[in-house]
Design a protein around this nucleic acid. Structure first.
Length: 388
DNA sequence: TATTAGTCAATAAG
DNA sequence: CTTATTGACTAATA
């Protein structure tokens, strides 16, 4: 105990109250009747709605997030409107968040009240007949401001240098950088290398919820900060979970969405529970854009044929002595029906079949996750507590 | 306290 | 330039 914590970060995040679209209603001020007047930071969805956004959300009927995002993406691309603009002015979110939301929307019933907000906003936006024009307008204004700024800094005669120019830090190719009141630290982004990720994934597979001890071990073995490892697990679990939601969505009902209705009649999100099997059949495209995922890996040697060298790839921890080794999969592959897709072709290809191992991996991970929760739930007898 | 949910923001990819 | 990815952080929950 006594590490240093330290100073670091004087975060000037500014994100708690006014990212750009506050909209939330922190103060319990009842806007009774008072809507947002001119000055509304974020063009609220409801024009004449006297309700707060939160209220609106709470009352919102179930929305089909999948269909909703699909439409939004369509409108945006059709009109050459970017996610940044849309996100900042309509949703009050940053580009990255918008990208994520549009690409992997969680099903309505899995969203918290807060998580539903962006979707409700999207719906209102779609209903606005002038949505496109409004955004295009903003785009224009923005561009104008941009050009203006640039112009003034170019022409204007004034040099900004003013004299006193000390060290010219900042050698970036980008000119104009004015007003740098905060030159703290850019904030260095930790970037995990492929080997590290692999090692972490492997660890996850064995234990989605590693003990502090295990975390420490991983951290030192991989030369990472403990917090990084912890964060990685948190993030990875979330991601896995989300992937599963997506599979549910596309497997669940895509039948009702086939319609071409503007005012989609949402609902239909009833299916829930254990969706696990993959059925490919409805009028759907038969393609399957699986996540490319990283390089192959993982070689679950199925029992049976005495195969040969069980030694899978080994993680090359950029380090040195890596005790690692003790991580062969302990749990047998849950499914016994490993379908060795052997379509007859290469019979002696040194390289094994890469693709598609991904799916199996995810499922395995999910199973471990479920097992973990079952263990936790084991102490409860009330099935209602089980969340599946 | 441990985890999850929701985002941000840097930066990789296109 | 735009969009996608992802480690880190905050608030909400169990």
């Amino acid at each position: 105990s006594s590490s240093s914590i330290s100073l670091k970060s004087a975060r000037a995040k500014t994100q708690m109250c006014t990212p750009l679209a506050p909209s939330l209603e922190p103060p319990s001020g009842e806007p009774s009747g008072g809507e947002s007047q001119p000055g509304t930071p974020l063009p609220l969805p409801g024009p004449i709605t006297g309700l707060s956004i939160q209220e609106t959300i709470a009352m919102s009927p179930e929305l089909d997030t999948y269909v909703l995002t699909k439409k939004v993406k369509e409108v945006l691309t059709d009109n050459n409107l970017g996610q940044r603009l849309f996100g900042e002015s309509i949703l009050g979110l940053t580009q990255g968040s918008v990208s994520d939301l549009l690409a992997r929307p969680k099903p309505w019933h899995k969203l918290s009240l807060k998580g539903r907000e962006p979707f409700v906003r999207m719906q209102f936006w779609l209903q606005d007949p002038h949505k496109v024009e409004k955004l295009m307008d903003m785009k224009r204004l923005e561009k104008k401001a941009y050009l203006k700024r640039r112009h003034s800094s170019l022409s204007d005669g004034h040099s900004v240098d003013g004299g006193l120019a000390g060290p010219d830090f900042l050698q970036s190719a980008s000119p104009q950088h004015q007003q740098p009141p905060q030159l703290y630290q850019k904030k260095i982004r930790v970037v995990l290398g492929p080997e590290e990720k692999e090692a972490l994934k492997r660890a996850y597979q064995e234990k989605p919820y590693p003990s502090p001890k295990t975390i420490e071990e991983l951290a030192s073995q991989l030369h990472l900060k403990t917090s990084t490892v912890i964060n990685w697990f948190h993030n990875y679990r979330s991601r896995i979970r989300r992937e599963l939601f997506i599979e549910e969505i596309q497997a669940a009902g895509s039948a009702a969405a086939a319609k071409a209705g503007e005012g989609d009649s949402c609902d239909g999100t009833e299916s829930d529970g254990t969706v696990e099997g993959r059925h490919r059949r409805p009028t759907g495209p038969e393609d399957h854009k699986e996540a490319p995922e990283d390089q192959d890996m993982e070689v679950r040697v199925e029992a049976g044929v005495s195969g040969g060298s069980p030694v899978p790839r080994n993680c090359t921890t950029s380090g040195s002595a890596g005790p690692g080794s003790s991580s062969s999969s302990l749990f047998g592959p849950p499914e016994a029906g490993l379908s060795l897709s052997a379509p007859a072709s290469h019979t002696s290809t040194p390289a094994r079949n890469p693709r598609e191992n991904t799916l199996r991996k995810k499922k395995a991970a999910n199973l471990n996750n479920i097992i973990h929760r079952l263990e936790k739930a084991a102490g409860k007898e009330d099935p209602s507590e089980w969340e599946f």
